[in-house]
Design a protein around this nucleic acid. Sequence first.
DNA 1: ACGACTCCTTACATCGATGTAAGTCCCAAG
DNA 2: CTTGGGACTTACATCGATGTAAGGAGTCGT
Lengths: 337, 337
Amino acid sequence: MAARARIKDVAEYAGVSPKTVSNVINNFEQVSDRTREAVKEAIDVLGYRVNIAGRQLRQGRTGMITLAVPELDVAYFAELATLVMAEADRRGRTVLLHQTNGARERELAALHGFDARFTDGVVLSPLALHPRDLATRDRSLPVVLLGERPAGGGTDHVAIDNVAAAREATAHLLSRGRRRIAVVGGRVSGRQGTDRLRTDGYRQALKEAGVPFDGDLVVPVDAFQWRDGARAAATLLDTDPRPDALLCLNDHLALGALRALHERRVSVPGSLDVVGFDDIEATRFSVPSLTTVAPDKQEIARAAVELLLDRIDIPGESPARDHVVGHALIVRESTGG
Amino acid sequence: MAARARIKDVAEYAGVSPKTVSNVINNFEQVSDRTREAVKEAIDVLGYRVNIAGRQLRQGRTGMITLAVPELDVAYFAELATLVMAEADRRGRTVLLHQTNGARERELAALHGFDARFTDGVVLSPLALHPRDLATRDRSLPVVLLGERPAGGGTDHVAIDNVAAAREATAHLLSRGRRRIAVVGGRVSGRQGTDRLRTDGYRQALKEAGVPFDGDLVVPVDAFQWRDGARAAATLLDTDPRPDALLCLNDHLALGALRALHERRVSVPGSLDVVGFDDIEATRFSVPSLTTVAPDKQEIARAAVELLLDRIDIPGESPARDHVVGHALIVRESTGG
DNA sequence: ACGACTCCTTACATCGATGTAAGTCCCAAG
DNA sequence: CTTGGGACTTACATCGATGTAAGGAGTCGT
């Protein structure tokens, strides 16, 4: 129950001044070996640990960064969070994880370091953010955006080439002879979100193959969860002529669709192909296993942390950077792999 | 790029003292309406936001609580984290999410509020923690344990009745005529972890049904992920006589097993039943859909936050509480549902 | 033995917010 | 006009860590 030891307590125990203790903690040279040992022992004995609030107040740094994602129960974000945490750990930082639910208000809060100014920087995976939110943000807080990017730029950004990825996935389906390819979770107009970019890539592939675009095949969804994929697939099966492939804009949608197709006794890939995005762990174990676009998540995490730490360590204005990460189409059973 | 406004800046702008601003921020009564309005306007104009480090230093409270779970890419923990965050939000707190990887060292760090002491309390889902880690912990930091509980008590705890849950799941399989039920992820001896408790429940059910226990049917796993379930299932299929049901101690194991069984052309539930634990979203969409033990996750989250906030708001020693949360067996296709 | 230098350590102020205690102001009653 | 009291507001110290600048103890050369 003893109150937590402060630097002052350690100093008294070791018979030195608080500043000397601080010097030891921060590995400053100007401390004799004898003093250093004495202080270290005092720290051990008293169980001293630095109080981050005090340090933050004085230095303006906490050694913590924030990662804000829309939904943790979307596996892609959970996997990404795991990787970002590992990378941050490797670089001696601690990650505070936040969930925005894709609400603009919460994304804004993340942009401003929440109520606090408790973190040194923010990695944000936005969904609802408005371009002007970025333009008017407080630039003293370093920010890196992941995936989605509200137009306008001016902020560091890490993502795959969504247009190319969708084009390749679509080309794969076309090469298998599919001609009526539905886009589950797609969007034809409006903001340049990931959904829009991927739909654009899909259209490019159609055009290159000389297949006419049919707006009815682009099906929006409420959310990117299993149930939405299942619902969309069920709806699509009732259309005439019905699609012969589903390009689902994330794996949850695709896995939900697989289930709905199974219930309707539609054989995959026999009579219909399914492709997803993200390459979450579950895609390797579904029945059938799922063909999907695998972003290099490891590299996304690495780059995000690196860009952010750069901004933190080297203050001052510098041009926004855009880091494009690699991706690969993993062909599995759902498209005959 | 103006530096962030401090309380002092607001005070000057509004023509009052810093303390008056503080009084307004904290909704103290002793402020005239006129002054209150003036201060509020100044806050808006300057974009002032309180600096949590300063407040924490002064008050010893941050309004933040920590949730530490083993692996975010285990869907159960991701879903639980989502619920805990929502509950905390409802009660006006912010959650910092941490991942321990089930490493004792990291769990210990969580117990001590990490390097920092800037979280008001910790909800920890331990895996590797030792009973004596709890005995020697610094009791000034409120802690609530989830799920697993290192023997010894003395710390608030929230979990389902694991023994009963496993007994019921096993009884369900027995009632379907299954007699050689393997436990994937089970453990017969050693610490009283969740795996051990569930295995105990399994044995109770066998005993009640007069079915002899066969230690060879308890299969340990490295981790509780799909691949481990797939591997275990593959191994079990090669035994003779082979099992007629798999009681998998979490859903990932079960889903991985389903895939392996599919590859071996073993029909589920035709020739073999599979049951999981946790009721993650994916179990509703797998082929076949998965019978599983559903803990009341909502209630786990609610209770965890409530117990923790109690400890935070009412300082001083009080006996540790044990909150047992309800569960239900959800019968789906994998056992003929 | 003395001054000049290192090398190490210390005193003090500071970061931002807020508890405590001490004002200040204004109005009403005497 | 003076005084008492309530309603508001302010000055100051404080939480813990650390930058700055000054202080003190040795060491070395001559």
